[in-house]
Amino acid sequence: MITINAINELRKQINEWKLKGLTVGLVPTMGFLHEGHESLIKRAKKENDRVVVSVFVNPTQFGPNEDLESYPRDIKHDEALCSNAGANIIFNPSPSEMYYKDASTTINVLGLTEGLCGAKRPVHFGGVCLVVSKLFNIVTPNRAYFGEKDAQQLAVIKKMVRDLNFDIEVVGCPIVREIDGLAKSSRNSYLSEHERSAALVLNQSLTLAKEALLAGKNDPAAIKNIITKKLDSESLAKIDYVEIVDSLTLKPVDIINSSILVAIAVYIGKTRLIDNFTFTQGGN
C-alpha cells in the first residue's frame, strides 16, 4: 500500500488500473480511522480489484466555531489500518491541493439538506457534496462506500450522484458499534472516561424507541418522547435534535406507516454525537 498526496500522481495510477480493466472502490474519510472505516475498506476490497481510501479533513464542510483545527488526525495510524484492511492507496492531499484559492464553484442538494444536521450546520452538506464530487472526478471509482451512521449524508450523496449522472454505485454500510452499543466515531476520542460512559445513553434511547415500534406504536410524537425522556435522564447529555422522518425524503412524518429514519444528535459535554436506525412498520 502507498500514500499519495498529489492529484496528478493518483490519476496516473488510476489510469493504469483502468487500462488493465480493473475496478476501483473508493472509501472517502476524514481520517483518524476506526473499525467502522475498516469495515468499509474490507467491503470495498471484497467488491473491487483495487481500493483507494481518501484521508482528508475537508475545510469546506466545517462552519464557524466547529472543530476543524482540533479534529483528530493520525496518518501513521490510518496507514497501518488501511494496509491491514487491504487498501491499495491512501490519498492524503493538502487543502491547497484540493482547492484553488479563487475557487467559486458550489454544489448543493436542496430539500434533503434542510432538516436534521443540515438545519444545525448550514454549510456542512454543501462542503460534503463539493469534496465528494471532486473525489469522484479524481478517482473515477466504480463504487464508493459510506457508513449508514451518517444517514443524511448518505441520502444526500445518493441524490447528488443521481442528479449529476455520476456513473458510480453508492454503497451504504451498516453502523459499527462498540460492544456496549456506542456507535464508532472519530469524535469519540474527544470524550473523557465519564463522558464515554454517559454517551451510551444515545443507543439506549434508540433501543427503547425500536422496542416501542416493534410493539406496534406508530405515533411519532410518542416515540420521540420515549427517546427524549431517556436522553434527559443523563445529566451530561444535551439534545440537539430528535427526529423521525421518511427514510427517502427525510421529511417529518405524521404517522409511522412506511420506512422511517429515527435520528438523534446529542452533545455529551462539548462533543456532538449522532446515531440513528431505520425501521419499516411490519418489516423490522
Rank of each mutant, 00 (worst) to 15 (best):
A263C: 09
T140V: 15
K224G: 13
I223A: 02
S189Y: 01
M30E: 05
V161Y: 00
K238N: 14
L231P: 02
D78S: 04
F146A: 11
L191G: 10
H37N: 11
E66T: 03
L130D: 10
A222F: 02
Y100C: 10
P93W: 08
R187A: 14
V242K: 08
T140I: 14
L135C: 07
A119C: 04
N92L: 07
R121Y: 03
D163G: 07
P220K: 07
S186R: 00
A87P: 12
R177E: 12
L182Q: 12
E114T: 15
G118E: 08
L202E: 04
L200V: 03
I41H: 05
E178Q: 12
P122H: 01
A144C: 06
E193V: 11
A155Y: 09
Y145R: 04
S205D: 10
A222V: 13
P95D: 07
T106Y: 01
T249D: 11
N58E: 09
D240N: 13
T113R: 01
P72W: 03
G111E: 14
N48I: 07
T60C: 10
N142M: 11
L248N: 15
K20C: 14
K12G: 14
F91R: 05
V52H: 01
H194G: 12
K18E: 14
S247R: 07
L112A: 12
P122K: 09
S192H: 07
P95S: 09
I2E: 14
Y99W: 01
T280W: 00
N108W: 07
C129E: 06
K76P: 06
A155D: 09
I4Y: 01
V52S: 04
E193I: 14
P59I: 01
E243L: 08
T278E: 11
N58G: 15
I168C: 05
D275P: 07
I226D: 08
P72Y: 02
F125S: 07
N218E: 15
T113L: 10
V170L: 09
D232G: 11
T60E: 11
S189C: 13
P122F: 01
A155C: 12
G21R: 01
A155K: 13
N48C: 15
L26N: 03
R196C: 11
A263S: 15
N58C: 13
I244K: 06
L116T: 10
K12S: 13
T249I: 11
L130C: 02
E16I: 13
V132M: 05
K76E: 15
F166R: 02
Y99M: 08
I274S: 06
R11F: 04
S104K: 15
W17P: 11
